[in-house]
């Protein structure tokens, strides 16, 4: 028999799982084969080394991240339960979790950023979960079919509600960004401010357009696109502050590069 045919038996011998017959055959081969004896010794050493690897302990900071995840998920589940009138155990996770926005690396502002994103998540969750209720409430008292005026009113109410939720989320993110603004390079801060100004102008123009044409899908899309861009820019700003805190030059350069793209 060739050595390769005995090799699996060597592992079984190391683990003590080789049959009596197999062990007898292998031992007979080992008496004649120095290579297999060496391999057996190595396999035993390897197993001993593996068992002796040190036990690792997760850093305490990891619990802070896990807790932030849990709080965000549990809050989202709570909001969904409230809107659906369901008991706790029937809540299902929302696809596309906000948790991907939470920085995975250590950072002083991670908790603040998570809290701000949670504002967005819960707000958006409540908005979308309650969305059908708005037109229903507006239509029910008068007739089965809304008049054009009622439709416009309900659309306006819906838009106002969504707008408020976005603004609330933006306010939270702005607060977080403000906390770490001192860390930013003045030139970068200037670019950021300029970009925020451009987006704010787009938001104002979209709102003006919506006031004159509340049912215009283009105007609606334009407003929410601008709001989302502002949230994206603020999130990038917070990421940049986090990278500055960590002293990660590559990460900083990457975020700075994205800041100019609004």
């Amino acid at each position: 028999m060739a050595c390769t045919e005995f090799q699996p038996a060597l592992s079984a011998l190391v683990d003590g799982t080789l049959s009596r017959e197999g062990k007898a055959r292998l031992e007979s081969h080992l008496e004649e084969c120095a290579d297999c004896r060496t391999l057996l010794t190595d396999l035993r050493r390897l197993r001993e080394s593996a068992r002796a690897l040190p036990k690792m302990t997760p850093p305490e900071s990891l619990w802070q991240k896990v807790r932030a995840d849990f709080d965000a998920e549990a809050s989202g589940a709570s909001a969904r339960r409230l809107s659906a009138g369901l008991p706790a155990s029937s809540a299902k996770p929302r696809p596309g979790s906000v948790l991907r926005f939470i920085p995975r690396r250590p950072s002083v502002l991670a908790g603040l950023a998570a809290a701000a994103v949670l504002v967005l998540a819960v707000s958006a969750g409540i908005f979308f979960a309650t969305r059908p209720a708005v037109p229903a409430a507006a239509v029910e008292p008068t007739s089965a079919h809304p008049t054009p005026a009622q439709t416009v009113q309900s659309v306006e109410a819906e838009l106002d509600l969504a707008d408020q939720h976005y603004e609330k989320a933006i306010a939270g993110l702005e607060q977080v960004a403000k906390e770490g603004q001192a860390l930013l390079d003045p030139q970068v801060a200037e670019v950021l401010q300029k970009n925020i100004g451009v987006i704010d102008q787009a938001i104002r123009e979209s709102r003006t357009a919506l006031r004159s044409q509340p049912t215009s899908e283009l105007a609606q899309a334009s407003l929410f696109d601008a709001l989302q861009r502002k949230i994206g820019l603020l999130r990038d700003t917070i990421s940049l502050i986090n990278e500055m805190r960590k002293g990660d030059q590559a990460g900083t350069a990457k975020v700075v590069g994205s800041l100019g793209k609004i």
Binding site: M56, T57, P58, L62, D69, F70
Partner: peptide, 28 residues
């Protein structure tokens, strides 16, 4: 601790923490 040892050996030190964070998120 027990799960961290598993992620540490399976995924390596660099990814062990992120992976364990994911474990508890998915667990919830």
């Amino acid at each position: 601790s027990r799960l961290y040892n598993l992620t540490y050996r399976m995924a390596g030190q660099a990814d062990a923490e992120d992976l364990l964070q994911d474990v508890f998120l998915q667990a919830y």
